[in-house]
Design a protein around this nucleic acid. Structure first.
Lengths: 163, 163
DNA sequence: CAGAATAGTTGTGAACTGCAATTATTGCTG
DNA sequence: CAGCAATAATTGCAGTTCACAACTATTCTG
């Protein structure tokens, strides 16, 4: 769609044919967030597919690396993943030999999560792929917009993150 | 909505203990976009539920209103909805008496979409609810961050957008 | 100690995704 | 101008995700 509403209607040249107006959606952050997220996930997943990961599995690995010994529910909370769904995701990572689940000493209900050596290697590769993806996002969005967006959105606190 | 008010104190205490680090995710726009989108959809849907809509149906209504006579595929493209999925969504809206599907005069393969009078009434209510939601987003994110985020993300062009 | 709360797990129904196939219609091209 | 490719809408399907509810084992609290 092109932006043909009153405020900022430039960059029109691209879309000649079925130019669709957005109406009120122009003023709704959720609309743009959804569009951007859609693109980001496709692009990031395409990159990570080369090492048999996706953004969800990657973000789990990275969170475990940053919080060795964390329980499943803590990782799930940080990433907005349902704890029930986390089980199968961790099964995958464990079966791939990237993480270990050990019973926690302090709380024998909980699992202490950790990376295997192989997990660390894969995570390093993943971070390189994701960094390349991030550059594509920045180029696509414009470097200034990218920085502004990251700064603004990082301020957001979900219900889970606010203490 | 999200957290039941009942079990407050212990939960928040436990949550503070489990301060989880994000590692590299701190630098990844996709992480924050996903978190924000999750919250936005929950909040917006909760508002729209009072008139039996959700954000998807609302955005379809708004797009039709801004583009009377548009074909299904045009609306689907603007909103990032698969055209196959659009069928059932429009079925719902039609059954609720909010839209009409007429065969297009110019192209008899296509449907010309339009709002019914009832559709216009509901859309007006929806826009009020969504505006209230938008204010909640702005307050949650901080008004300055909200404006910056909206300005930055509105620049993004999807693959469909660019010719 | 009894009862409530919590971590992990399993299961379920509904919804969404991406894809393939079908029909009716249109547009292109040789 | 006839045939063939492309397109709009629709149907159907397999795999995934989602939000819940229920269950076990363990821990915390009064």
């Amino acid at each position: 769609m092109s932006k043909s509403a009153g405020a900022g209607a430039q960059r029109e040249a691209a879309r000649q044919d079925a130019a669709i107006r957005l109406g009120e959606l122009e003023n709704h952050l959720g609309y743009f967030v959804r569009r951007l997220q859609h693109w980001i996930f496709r692009d990031a997943n395409a990159g990570l597919a080369t090492i048999d990961l996706d953004v969800i599995l990657y973000s789990i690995l990275e969170t475990i690396a940053a919080n060795p010994g964390a329980a499943q529910i803590a990782v799930a909370g940080a990433l907005g993943i349902e704890r029930a769904r986390m089980v199968a995701l961790l099964d995958d990572l464990q079966q791939a030999g990237l993480i270990v689940r050990e019973r926690s000493e302090q709380d024998r209900r909980a699992h202490a999560l950790g990376l295997t050596p192989r997990g660390r290697v894969i995570l390093k590769k993943a971070n390189a792929l994701v960094a390349a993806h991030e550059k594509r996002v920045a180029r696509r969005l414009g470097v200034d917009n990218y920085r502004r967006a990251l700064a603004a959105l990082a301020q957001f606190e979900t219900d889970e993150t606010r203490g």
